[in-house]
Amino acid sequence: MTFSLVARCAETGMFGLAISSSSPAVAARCSYARAGVGAVASQNVTDPTLGPRALDLMQGGMSAPEAISQIQSEGKFIEYRQVLAIDTQGRTAIHSGPNSLGIWTQSEGRDVASGGNLLANDGVPDAIVAGFMNSTGHIGDRLIAAMRAGLAAGGEAGPVHSAGMQIVDHVSWPVADLRCDWTEECPIGAIATAWEIYKPQLDAYIQRALDPREAPSYGVPGDD
């Protein structure tokens, strides 16, 4: 019921992931990223413990392939799970259990990995990876381009209703965490619109947290 990608910007070291599904609030259950460590998408009959566990393993020194191998050995009902990971070196790994739903497949490229289940066709992850690798600019722009490429390639077998995009940089919290938890329209389009608005303000929100004395105002009520 889901297609996603995890990715790394080789120039900045930022990690990001984007995800969409016919299920509600997919990003709240499936998206995990940690600055200086990596990004993980845990999906398909989701076990929300697997994302943080994979990040802990990578933070402890494992590569993405090693972390996914450990997840495969210790995860409960792992045959139902689909887990994607990327690490600080841009290494990727994917576990897709044989009980993943519908048409399920995966794809990996330089600094990016994609996987999905209940897909319209088995070419969707390849299209997502190509969409990321062939795009330029901020990692957020590239994540959006990749998800749009996956949607154009067929996306999920049915309509998608939720989506999310998370980006981490040099601070301990996500510098962008945009979600559309339910819509009858296109949730990827909703995230893209939110990103257009949020992107110019991203650095200011970081500055407000680190030292609000130097942060600019955006003229909203109560914002001095």
Score class of each variant (00 low, 15 high):
M1P: 08
S4P: 12
L5R: 06
V6W: 02
A7K: 12
R8H: 09
A10K: 14
A10T: 12
G13W: 08
S20V: 15
S21W: 04
S21K: 02
S22K: 12
S22D: 09
A27I: 05
A28L: 08
R29P: 00
C30Y: 05
A33K: 07
A35L: 02
G36V: 03
G36R: 05
S42G: 06
Q43E: 12
P48L: 03
P48F: 04
P48G: 03
P48E: 10
P48Q: 09
R53S: 02
A54D: 04
A54V: 15
L55F: 05
M58S: 04
Q59P: 00
Q59D: 03
G61F: 03
G61E: 10
E66C: 02
I71R: 03
Q72F: 00
S73P: 00
E74F: 04
I78H: 05
I78D: 07
R81E: 08
V83Q: 04
V83Y: 02
T88S: 10
G90P: 06
G90R: 13
T92N: 04
T92W: 03
A93D: 14
I94E: 08
I94C: 08
H95N: 07
P98W: 13
P98H: 13
S100H: 02
G102C: 08
T105G: 06
T105C: 10
Q106V: 11
S107Q: 15
S107Y: 10
S107T: 08
E108F: 03
E108L: 12
G109V: 15
D111K: 13
V112A: 11
S114A: 15
G115M: 08
G115S: 15
G116Q: 08
N117Q: 14
A120T: 09
N121D: 14
D126C: 07
I128A: 11
I128C: 06
V129D: 05
L143Y: 07
I144M: 07
A146N: 11
M147W: 00
R148M: 11
R148N: 13
G150Q: 12
L151A: 11
A152G: 07
E156S: 14
A157H: 09
P159R: 13
H161C: 11
M165A: 06
M165F: 05
M165K: 10
M165D: 11
V168L: 01
H170G: 01
H170P: 01
P174G: 01
P174V: 00
P174K: 00
A176W: 11
A176S: 14
L178N: 06
R179V: 10
W182G: 04
E185D: 14
E185S: 14
C186D: 15
A192D: 15
A192N: 13
T193M: 01
A194Y: 04
E196V: 10
E196D: 15
Y198K: 07
D203H: 12
Y205S: 00
I206D: 00
R208T: 11
A209K: 04
P212Y: 06
R213Y: 08
A215N: 12
Y218S: 06
P221T: 12
G222Y: 10
D223L: 11
